[in-house]
């Protein structure tokens, strides 16, 4: 995997844009997924994931070929998401409760194109609850939790991606886990 990526990067450096297409194809799901879990919104996640790939392309000459490409790419993506979260003014969330109602969210006010199969609803609900809880975590805990449990990266890699000391990463994971535990214990 890394070997193929290195080969493609060298081709990109020589000006071969098509080689970059293959890199995008290989990492798009992972990057999109990280962005989605960080931002909790598909539309924003797509914007940020695309932006991450574009930035990686324009800065590809800064990438140290001896290092892991995915780490570098995640770093760009998580930094973009963190910036986005910080800049974001509170706006409407589809799954935020509509004021004056109980348990009624914007989802129920928006017509869906295709009805979901009944059996999926429960797991979808659980999924969206979990996602919502992840989204309420402070951004510094959210990024470590997402990288650790959703991308299943090692602590060392997370510390590389976020450019934080290993000890800080550990502390944040501990606190993030505790915060999530309190939020999810009632499930």
């Amino acid at each position: 995997m890394e070997l193929i990526i290195k080969k493609r990067i060298k081709q990109v450096l020589k000006g071969d844009q098509n080689a970059y297409g293959e890199i995008v194809e290989l990492y798009k799901d992972k990057v999109y997924h990280v962005c989605y879990r960080m931002l909790g919104n598909r539309h924003e996640a797509e914007d940020m994931a695309q932006e991450a790939f574009i930035r990686a392309y324009t800065n590809i000459h800064k990438f140290d070929i001896d290092r892991k490409f995915s780490t570098w790419l995640y770093r760009i993506a998580t930094n973009l998401c963190i910036d986005r979260i910080r800049k974001k003014k509170p706006d409407y969330y589809l799954d935020a409760e509509v004021s004056g109602t109980e348990g009624l969210t914007m989802y129920s006010q928006i017509q869906t194109d295709e009805p979901l199969p009944e059996e999926e609803v429960e797991s979808m609900e659980l999924q969206s609850t979990i996602q919502k809880e992840i989204s309420t975590l402070p951004e510094k805990y959210r990024s470590v939790i997402v990288l650790k449990y959703i991308e299943e990266l090692s602590l060392k890699e997370i510390s590389d991606i976020l450019d934080l000391p290993l000890g800080t990463v550990k502390t944040r994971i501990h606190r993030g886990r505790e915060a999530l535990r309190k939020q999810l214990r009632t499930l």
Binding site: V31, I130, I134, L180, L184
Partner: peptide, 19 residues
């Protein structure tokens, strides 16, 4: 349990026209 919940979130895929 929290970890299991977080890990249970399905891996979503990028939109088809992403690349």
């Amino acid at each position: 349990r929290t970890i299991a919940f977080v890990q249970s979130t399905s891996h979503i895929q990028a939109p088809s026209n992403f690349t």
